[in-house]
């Protein structure tokens, strides 16, 4: 049993190491010095207090999209639509931030709740279609991503602004920005959202491990038919899982909207926070606390990548290649795990 846990623990670490080695080989082949490259990456992520603040800022939405996808995975659902849910959450938060005039104690929670509600609503559609009609959630969530993208762009252009590509900044009463966190990190864009994200991880842990709902969700994930036979309402659980998952992703949108940018702009394509969340959830093995670490790792990689062109001449996209390879290694390593366990059984 101890061995099984050890393997579960080792696979993500081995995958990350393999990914970084592959990145070093790619740098060597392209004629760069990997040591210089990775030093630049490290400095870009942790070099001074400013970059640390920016790394935390970048980590914040990753934690939430990672939790979103991990939560759905726990129930056997694949929410590939976090991308769209982030967009609608972002849009809703900005909308409330612009349209409502209220003291901060009402305005900020209202804007955050709006983002959660928008994300939840966006994932309700695939949830209900899966529960009532058995339509596969992967396809529906992908389609919902593009509907979100184009609709949000249209709303930004013709409702929130008068044909402009970026909205006005939200009023200060809806902002998550923190002068204190900014001042200790040499005026990075770090904001209070990180506390919300960490709290969300605790909430997910609590729902999964300490509530009847969480128990049922996991049961449905393991075996839908057995759960139904045991008297659980499978369709209700599917809808609820998707809605909660979408809520987390919508909240990630609020982090970008209320925390980092304070505005929303017309998007030309995917914003990738949702897709990167898939990598985060996978690497974190769907455990809420491991997801936080995985999000931090990817946040650091992405932030550090910004320093690689100036520090070592290496294109930033190297990090995207490394992340894609890490996903392959984690996803494919199940056969390694299976082989190891099989081997162990054979010994006895």
């Amino acid at each position: 049993m101890a061995n099984k846990r050890l393997i579960t623990f080792l696979i993500p670490i081995i995958s990350v190491i393999l990914g970084l080695i592959a990145g070093a080989i790619i740098m060597l082949v392209s004629g760069y010095n990997p040591i210089v490259g990775y030093t630049a990456l490290w400095n870009g992520a942790f070099g001074d207090s400013y970059t640390i603040g920016e790394t935390v800022r970048r980590t914040t939405p990753y934690i939430l999209t990672g939790l979103s996808i991990a939560f759905a995975f726990r129930s056997g659902l694949f929410n590939i639509g976090a991308e769209g849910q982030v967009i609608v959450g972002w849009l809703a938060a900005i909308w409330v931030g612009l349209a409502v005039d209220a003291p901060m104690i009402i305005h900020l929670p209202l804007a955050i709740l709006a983002s959660v509600a928008a994300g939840a609503l966006w994932s309700f559609v695939p949830g209900i279609l899966k529960a009532k009609l058995g339509v596969h959630e992967v396809i529906v969530t992908i389609m919902m991503n593009y509907i979100a993208l184009f609709s949000a762009n249209e709303i930004i252009r013709s409702v929130l602004t008068d044909g402009a590509t970026t909205t006005e900044p939200i009023s200060a009463t809806a902002s998550l920005a923190s002068p204190w966190l900014q001042s200790i990190t040499f005026y990075s864009r770090m904001h209070y959202g990180i506390l919300i994200a960490l709290f969300a991880a605790v909430i997910m842990w609590f729902i999964i491990e300490r509530t009847t709902l969480g128990y049922e969700l996991k049961a449905v994930g393991y075996n839908k038919h057995a759960s139904k036979y045991a008297g659980m309402n499978v369709s209700k659980n599917i809808v609820l899982t998707m809605v909660i998952s979408g809520g987390f992703a919508g909240l990630a949108g609020a982090m970008e909207g209320l925390g980092t940018y304070g505005t929303i702009s017309v998007m030309s394509g995917n914003i990738n926070i949702g897709f990167d969340g898939i990598a985060v959830a996978l690497l974190g093995a769907n455990n809420p606390f491991a997801v936080v670490f995985a999000a931090f790792l990817f946040g650091a990689l992405k932030e550090g990548a910004g320093e690689m062109p100036t520090g070592a001449g290496v294109p930033t996209e190297l990090v995207d290649i490394i992340i894609a390879l890490i996903i392959f290694f984690v996803a494919s390593s199940y056969i390694i795990r299976w082989a190891l366990l099989r081997f162990k059984k054979g010994e006895k």
């Binding site: 694949f78 294109p315 894609a324 390879l325 199940y334």
Partner: peptide, 26 residues
Amino acid sequence: ASITFRSDQTISGVAINMLALGLGVY
């Protein structure tokens, strides 16, 4: 990945998307 290593086909597909774009732009 998805046939021989039996990894989740959707995840492998997502990784293909990231890898192709990363590699192409790199």
